[in-house]
Design a protein around this nucleic acid. Structure first.
Lengths: 195, 195
DNA sequence: TTTTTGTTAAACAAAAATGTTAAACAAAAA
DNA sequence: TTTTTGTTTAACATTTTTGTTTAACAAAAA
């Protein structure tokens, strides 16, 4: 609980997030993180006691952040199509910056055996599912289980970013060409969901 | 290079794949793997020298297997629509059994810094991209960059399996209900790509 | 100024994970 | 049978990673 706040605590968290979520190095040690942050490894202990607590902290913040991001976009008072547009923009930007954030969350859940995380507010999702269903009835989008609609959307948005290292292989593309390719997907996805 | 072959080597590899690809425990130690396989940890060293070599072996086999699976489906001599049907069936089955295989590959590439893996045969993919383009010209499927068509397909197929632990949270579903939901996707995806 | 508080680093200690060796055992070959 | 070969185990050694302690330092407060 530092009061003077030289930003070191935040720096460590941000660095951890960069290494884990952006670089996708899920096996990063405390050394790796401290080094990348330009601080002594003991500083890490000073702020977080243990590696597990640092990881737990990053996990919780990330989980909350994801929840808030979802909630904000879904609960915003705007026409449906604008909302979807917003959702695509927000999540694509996030995936570009932190492609492995959700992967980190899932592998943490798998290793730590966190079965059901409480305190997750599902109301925004539940309400949004209803809104989707209404749009389907109105004929704006294809009729299906609205959960599928959401899963489709997030799949199309997220997966190519995560698989980039493999897709560059299989498509024989360099970084620049691949980045250009995925940049095209913003419009493509929008057109896909509104058939 | 065992000649007697008691199946232990294969058992170790299979167990490693189960823990890494199926259970998604990407931090598994040699202890974890040996224990799960029911062998002494030294047996692991006997067959693979080091942990890194075991992981490298699993990585290479997995990479090859993925490449072969892709090639087989894509190069099969069948009508396009049947091919897609086959592709969906094959990859969904694989994702159900080993949801984290591609994630493992990607995170390994990220940590080991394997930039470009040589010896990957891209001809099947290249040919299939042409085939897709022809079908687009024929009006069977929506016109777009055929790479997007493939990325869309694999995204829709794969992502929900990987995100299962999170989606169960956000949708408030138990395992059984979620399994039923994703089972519906086989038909849904087929209908989606053929608009 | 001295004191307090927050912060950092260096050195050390403990634990965890990995790697090595040598010996025992079983089955096939000589 | 004895010998050889492949396999497995137990015990030990090393390395890596993590955690702890102490002291030093800087800035604000008294």
């Amino acid at each position: 609980m530092p009061l003077k706040n030289t930003g070191t605590e935040q720096l460590i968290k941000d660095t951890a997030k960069r290494i884990l979520f952006a670089e996708g190095k899920l096996h990063a040690t405390t050394q790796d993180i401290a080094e990348a942050a330009g601080v002594n490894r003991a500083a890490l202990h000073y702020y977080f006691r243990t590696r597990d607590q640092l990881v737990a902290c990053v996990f919780n913040e990330s989980m909350l952040e994801l929840s808030v991001r979802l909630g904000t976009v879904m609960a915003s008072v705007r026409p449906f199509q604008e909302k979807i547009e917003e959702l695509i923009a927000v999540f694509m930007k996030e995936m570009r910056a932190y492609p492995y954030q959700e992967i980190f969350l899932v592998t943490e859940i798998n290793t730590a055996g966190v079965e059901l995380v409480k305190d997750i507010d599902n109301m925004p999702v539940a309400n949004f599912l209803n809104e989707i269903e209404n749009e389907m009835s109105a004929g704006v989008i294809e009729k299906m289980n609205p959960k599928h609609f959401l899963m489709n959307l997030f799949s199309l948005l997220s997966y190519p970013f995560i698989m980039a290292p493999l897709y560059r292989q299989f498509f024989n593309l360099n970084h620049q060409d691949f980045d250009q390719l995925v940049a095209e997907r913003k419009q493509l996805i929008y057109r896909m969901v509104f058939k």
